[in-house]
Simulated assay, not measured.
Amino acid sequence: MVRLSNGYPTKFKPSRWNIAHATFYGDDTASETMGGACGYGNLFKNGYGTDTAAVSTVLFKNGYGCGTCYQLMCAYSKWCNPRKGHGGFPIITVTATNLCPPNWGKDSNAGGWCNPPRTHFDLSMPAFKKIAFWKAGIVPVQYRRVPCGKKGGIRFSFQGNNYWLLAYVMNVGGAGDIAKMWVKGSRTGWISMSHNWGASYQAFAQLGGQSLTFKLQSYTTRQVIVAYNVVPPYWNTGMTYQAKVNFR
């Protein structure tokens, strides 16, 4: 069941095209992109694949930018991949799964690509090669926020114990991001969860042996969704549970 807050949009619409730059990290295996600051773990196993990006601080937003999706196209560079797309340039859609940290030892225009206030995308190598030749190292891009088209429901991966629940939220559709989160046990009322880091939220409460319902609010649209009894009473840490609902 989806419940929307009155006065908020029900769907996330693409933004305007803006200008930034893109680099890449790792190699063709994309092994170095696994894990990351959002806490998504194995990106292949959890549905993100290699079309991912580590984003600069201004886009990461202290973790509230985790899960956001962007269309990127290499533009006006001799290094652009010649495959056709929007305006004759190739386009990819990537999900923000990691932070590209500042490098204060280098100038923002000469190696410190992710220094604030720059908007920058550090792509996996396979994603970068879809829009440009890897030898370029860095290319100008146009980008825009787009809805995240995800298959299946939102996933909740657990760590913690019976008295402390840490939930990583993955596979979020719509705007892709989470601003607030609540949990309700079968023997409790709603408990507000605090933002831990990346895409994880925590509750200091005794929730063992209870079925769990989660309520989430999008950071961008403020849309609210409730996943009723998504977790059975015999839940365990180290497990991932999938809801039947998602943001639109």
Rank of each mutant, 00 (worst) to 15 (best):
Q142W: 15
M125P: 00
P147N: 11
Y143S: 09
I138L: 14
Q159G: 15
P126R: 07
N162G: 14
D107H: 05
A110L: 08
A132E: 03
G137A: 08
P147L: 09
I138C: 09
I154M: 13
A127Y: 10
K150T: 12
A136H: 10
W113S: 02
G112L: 00
P117M: 05
P126K: 07
V141I: 15
K129Y: 11
G149D: 12
P126F: 11
N115Y: 06
Q159V: 05
R118L: 12
Q142A: 11
P101G: 00
S108P: 02
A136Y: 11
R144L: 11
M125L: 14
G152T: 13
G137E: 09
D122E: 12
S124T: 12
T119D: 09
H120E: 10
F133K: 13
S124R: 05
A127P: 11
G152M: 12
Q159C: 02
C148M: 10
P147W: 07
R144F: 13
C114A: 12
K106H: 01
W134D: 14
A110S: 14
S157I: 04
K135G: 04
N103I: 01
R118I: 03
R144S: 13
K151E: 15
N109S: 07
G105T: 03
G105R: 01
D107W: 01
D107S: 07
P116F: 04
N161E: 11
C114P: 04
D107A: 05
D107E: 06
S124K: 03
N161T: 14
G105Y: 01
G152W: 14
